[in-house]
Amino acid sequence: MNYHILTLFPDMVLNGLNTSIIGRAAEKGLLSIEAIDIRDYSKDKHHSVDDYPYGGGAGMVMQPMPICEAYDDLCRKTGKKPRVIYMTPQGTVFNQTIAGELAKEEDLVFLCGHYEGIDERALNLVATDFLSIGDYVLTGGELPAMVMIDCISRLIPGVLNNESSAEFESFHDNLLEYPQYTRPEEYRGLKVPEVLLSGHHKNIESWRREQSIKRTLERRPDLLKEAVLSKKEEEFLNKLMKEQENG
């Protein structure tokens, strides 16, 4: 996976992403992270990339030329036209399913807007996907880009030391992850569930699935509409729902 981030703040994204698991994956060559400074493509002597909006209004708008020039240069270097993701509150809300789809790409471009946004012509010419990380507004696209890159990278083979980790995290089968425990066995009067100490893998797996279903019902019941459950698990869910209705 090769990430190309079109940004006004390259140090921000590089300093954030070249750490922890993602940084180690980059060092191993499992992925690459390139930050392209949009200002480098400005023809203005002051490297300006924004101007006042036509029709009036508050704030400034990023000009189309530097963005399109930066993307064209990237296409020449890579010999292809990579998928371009523009982070915007107007986009589809990013989720684990979208992350899995994007993880199959060889190259991904993240276009980070600022100010009052980007000239619509640049978006028409280069953007292929409009994604959001939630219904709120940030000062720029860098943080959403970093969030998405972190999520996508965890699905790339070899990035996580334990290959099964990504498969059984939250949102696998549209369920939240089960509770986790480690040593000591008892802390401030709270004990680790007996089943986890039993060594009986089938019982542990069954307990974890039930806990995932229970936690999803309590915290994100909306996810259950698309959850992948066995007949036995559906019966368990129905029992929980009845208990919830009865208080």
Score class of each variant (00 low, 15 high):
166 A>E: 03
9 F>D: 13
71 Y>T: 15
202 K>C: 05
242 K>A: 07
75 C>R: 02
154 R>S: 06
16 G>R: 02
139 T>G: 05
199 G>W: 02
131 L>G: 04
223 L>N: 14
203 N>S: 14
119 D>I: 14
205 E>N: 13
246 N>C: 04
49 V>H: 11
23 G>E: 01
4 H>K: 13
57 G>N: 00
223 L>F: 14
64 P>N: 08
54 Y>G: 00
61 V>W: 05
120 E>H: 13
85 I>D: 03
103 A>D: 04
108 L>A: 09
112 C>W: 03
46 H>N: 13
63 Q>A: 01
28 K>C: 05
181 Y>W: 10
41 Y>G: 15
29 G>D: 00
226 E>R: 11
218 E>I: 10
181 Y>E: 02
241 M>I: 15
57 G>R: 02
85 I>K: 01
187 Y>C: 06
76 R>K: 11
57 G>L: 01
173 D>G: 10
187 Y>H: 04
210 E>W: 07
240 L>T: 13
127 A>F: 11
209 R>Q: 15
210 E>R: 15
228 V>R: 12
200 H>L: 07
173 D>F: 03
229 L>R: 04
36 I>R: 02
210 E>D: 08
176 L>R: 13
194 E>Q: 15
165 S>G: 09
8 L>Q: 13
58 A>V: 11
208 R>T: 03
181 Y>G: 09
112 C>M: 03
202 K>D: 11
148 M>I: 00
192 V>Q: 08
154 R>M: 06
56 G>D: 14
118 I>G: 08
32 S>C: 02
8 L>G: 09
240 L>K: 14
56 G>Q: 08
140 G>Y: 09
151 C>E: 11
135 D>R: 07
176 L>I: 13
30 L>I: 08
22 I>N: 02
239 K>W: 06
60 M>N: 08
98 I>A: 01
143 L>A: 12
74 L>R: 09
45 K>Q: 10
35 A>C: 02
247 G>N: 12
67 I>Q: 01
159 V>M: 02
38 I>W: 07
14 L>P: 01
180 Q>R: 12
179 P>I: 08
136 Y>P: 01
137 V>E: 07
155 L>Y: 03
14 L>K: 09
29 G>N: 00
44 D>S: 13
86 Y>V: 07
52 Y>N: 10
99 A>G: 04
245 E>V: 07
231 K>Q: 13
30 L>E: 04
190 L>N: 07
212 S>M: 14
196 L>Y: 12
98 I>G: 03
15 N>T: 10
156 I>M: 07
181 Y>C: 00
120 E>M: 04
86 Y>L: 09
